[in-house]
Amino acid sequence: MMTSDMNENRPVSKVLVLDDSPAHANAIKRFCDEHNLVGLKVRKNRLLSVLRSNIDLGAILFSESYGGSLEESAEIALKISTVRPELPIIIRRETSPTLDGLPEGMRRVLCAAYLAGDMAPLRKVIDEYIFSLEYPNALVRGILEITESILSSLFKDVSITWDTPCIVRDRIIFGEVFSLIPLESAWCRGYMMMQAEEQAILELLDRHGMCDAPADFRDLNSLLGEITNLIWGSFKNRYLGDADALARNQVQVPLLVNHKQKYISFGTANPQLCFVYHLTNEQSGHTVKLHQRFIFNLSWSPEDFSEVAQDIGAVVEAGELDLF
């Protein structure tokens, strides 16, 4: 976790490393370090439960020997693909950097192969599947600043920290409630999503005396809606300006939510920009997590990204009255 006074804005991506070879462990670790990847290991008997949890993954680095035999490995790869079809599975082969010679079913769920001695194909896949969208540092930093400022204004006596922003490909929804708001500009079109766990937020509301009666899910909805609205407003004022976005071609795609699987799709395989905030009560030490995701599924032109000149900033601070 990084804290608000650190200055690391470049997003990372978490990859699950399913490769037990001690001979190649260092090479994989070095590759991860050099390419902004955070390699995570998991015990084999916990693999599926971990895959079903919210760890915001970008990809799976697999090995053909992971299962002990090729048949076992093929079975594991198929299970991974069934549980998390949105995650690219990249396999390390022993002799050939291709999918040749692998069982047909296994080949279908793998996206590429590489050799430990030549990581170039792995780099290409990581660039293609994870870091395919370039997020300007100023944007990432700005989102953190805006969100921290708004959360601080809403919750007194709470310290706010955040994890290093990450690029994710999974679509699993964190918690039980989320908000969604469109972002429209000349350089981006998509959504911002805020996700939360119901009980944790209800307890936060009660501890801070923010409701007259014990907080219920309507209070939670309202709070999450207002947090979303405030972040959206600041984001809009800072980055979207008065762009004539509405006059342009308004392409839309259906969003799909599967409640049973806790899964949301925005109609694209594009990776998402994810932030996780930790709100910690300074007295009790109790922490609440908020997940924030940016999904630019309709349009993304970072080369046109710019910050809007802050017309009001120099004259009137947020919260102060500007009398006409």
Binding site: A318, G319, L321, D322, L323, F324
Partner: peptide
Amino acid sequence: GWIVKPFK
């Protein structure tokens, strides 16, 4: 008059 949220 105009106030930019948050409310103070």
